[in-house]
Every structure is written in structure tokens, then in C-alpha cells.
Design a protein around this nucleic acid. Structure first.
Lengths: 98, 98
DNA sequence: ATAAATTAGTTTATTTTATAAACCAAATAA
DNA sequence: TTATTTGGTTTATAAAATAAACTAATTTAT
């Protein structure tokens, strides 16, 4: 009846990150930070978790001599997000049968 | 852009409880337990939180000499759920503008 | 040249949640 | 009568979220 929700995506910030990345080729750390209003620390931690889960790819480089962290969603990430959304629907649509 | 999600509802079990109650006049503890597959302990705690938030009403009585806990959603609970669902849509629909 | 502030993060510590395990009281069954 | 089941609650532990402190380098101001 209620499908279980991927705990990796069932987090406000991680869901926002994925939601953002799914519409983009890639995004920089600071861009994600602005869009999500997250603190840098929290964002750093959550990006790490998504990367370890294989949901996003993280590339570290330099731009104008400064560190630059670029994130992009992976195929697994897209799949996980889609499944998460489908499972959510068992909670938010009133089709409470089976 | 991403609207903040009511932390009281952003929990798998509490969301399932509310989702269930929104379609019913009321429901008994054991019924909710079966439908959500929750453990009694977890369910007890989460029902408590929803009650303290004013999202559900809990009535304790006896049925066949046994304790009976009956829950029903409140107006505030319905409102909170509807708002939660609307906020969720900023995460799951790709209308990532403003 | 050097101190202060800013950028772009990471790490560590603390608080909050979720969850499981243990427990309790009463009733029923063996 | 003791063992089990019902219907929970309470307590303890594990996991998550978050904030605060820190690092390292750069830029700006003095």
C-alpha cells in the first residue's frame, strides 16, 4: 500500500539537489548552495552521500585559482529519483487501495 | 524555489498515517499498524507527535475490555497535508523556475 | 608588506529523529 | 496456573540533519 521511500532521497536537501540536477547538465557547488539555501557544511555532507550512493558524479577542479566542485546526476540518480516520485504517489494520491 | 517541507509530515510513517486518515472518518491503532507495517513502538511515538502538533485527534477507550486507541485527522492536519503536498511539487515537478 | 576579509569548501560536534527493543497490564487459552 | 496474546508505552540506541568551527588559498585595504 505505502511503498517504502528511498531514505537517501527522503531528505529535504538531498531531494532538492537531485531535483535541481535532473534539469541540468551539471551545476557548481555555489550554484546549488544558492538555489537550495543550504549552508556550505550541510551541502558538502549531503553531496558526499549522494556521490557515495552513485546518484551524482562530483568533479573537483579549479576556476580562477579557486576550488570548484561540479556535480551532475548519474543514470542511477535519475532512476532513483523517478522511483522515489512514484513511491511518493502512494502517499499523496488518494488511491489508498492495495 | 524549493519550499520548505513541514518536518512533521516529512517522515515516512507520519506521512503514511496522515495519508491513511485523510481518507477515513477515523482509524484504530491496530488498523493503522497493519496498513503501514509499522512496529507498535514506532507507531505509538509518531501518533503522539502528530497529536501534539494538533494534526490528529486521539481517543483512548476500551473495546471488549481491551484498550483501544482511535485516531482521526483534524482540520489543521488536513491543511498541513495539503500544504505539504503542494510544497513537495516544487521538488518533484520540473518547474524549477522561481 | 601585512593584516583583514572573502571564497570555497571540509571536518567535527551537537541536536533531532527514527527505530528497535524491552517492558507493562489485562485478558484469554492451554 | 502458567503461557500466550493483545494493545499498547517507555527507554535505549542508531542514524540523520544541522550548525559551528576550521582549513587553505585569494583578494582587498592599509
Amino acid at each position: 500500500m505505502f511503498k517504502s521511500l528511498d531514505p537517501l532521497l527522503h531528505s529535504q536537501l538531498r531531494l532538492a539537489i537531485i531535483s535541481l540536477l535532473i534539469g541540468l547538465e551539471s551545476a557548481e557547488f555555489t550554484f546549488i548552495k544558492e538555489k537550495t539555501n543550504a549552508t556550505a557544511g550541510n551541502l558538502s555532507v549531503q553531496i558526499d552521500k549522494l556521490e557515495k550512493a552513485g546518484y551524482i558524479k562530483v568533479v573537483k577542479s579549479f576556476k580562477a585559482k579557486r576550488p570548484l566542485t561540479t556535480c551532475s546526476i548519474t543514470k542511477e540518480g535519475i532512476k532513483a529519483f523517478e522511483e522515489y516520485v512514484n513511491h511518493l504517489k502512494t502517499y499523496i494520491n488518494r488511491d489508498n487501495e492495495k
